[in-house]
C-alpha cells in the first residue's frame, strides 16, 4: 500500500469542501445548510493538520483548535437565530424565508 501523503489529505479536504458548498447551494432546510457549513470548517481543519504535520510546525494544529472553538460558537449562535426565526415564522425552509426581496 502506498504511503498517505499530504496530497491525499488535500484531496480529502477538497472533497469535503465541495460536498459542503454543494450542500449549502442546493439544500433548502436551514439546519442542513448549517451542517454543510460545518463540513467546510472541518475540511479546513483537515488541511491545517495535514500541512502542520508536513511542515513539522505546531501553528497549524493550534489554528485547527481555534477553528473548532469558533465553529462551536457559531453553531450555538446559529441555532439560537434559527429558533428565534421559527418562533416568528414557523418554518425552517429557506424558500419560505422571503419577507424581503430586491
Amino acid at each position: 500500500m502506498p504511503p498517505v501523503t499530504p496530497v491525499h489529505y488535500l484531496f480529502l479536504s477538497m472533497a469535503l469542501f465541495t460536498i459542503g458548498v454543494i450542500g449549502v447551494l442546493t439544500r433548502r432546510n436551514v439546519i442542513i445548510i448549517l451542517i454543510s457549513i460545518e463540513l467546510i470548517f472541518n475540511a479546513v481543519n483537515i488541511n491545517l493538520v495535514a500541512f502542520s504535520s508536513q511542515f513539522a510546525s505546531i501553528s497549524g494544529q493550534t489554528f485547527a483548535i481555534f477553528v473548532i472553538v469558533a465553529a462551536a460558537a457559531e453553531a450555538a449562535v446559529g441555532l439560537g437565530i434559527i429558533i428565534a426565526l421559527f418562533r416568528n415564522k414557523e418554518t425552517v425552509n429557506a424558500d419560505e424565508i422571503d419577507l424581503m426581496k430586491w
Binding site: V24, I33, L34, G78, I81, I82, R87, I97, L99
Partner: peptide
C-alpha cells in the same frame, strides 16, 4: 430574525 438568519448563513 429573517435578516439575522440570512446574515448568519
Amino acid at each position: 430574525s429573517e435578516s439575522s438568519l440570512k446574515y448568519f448563513l
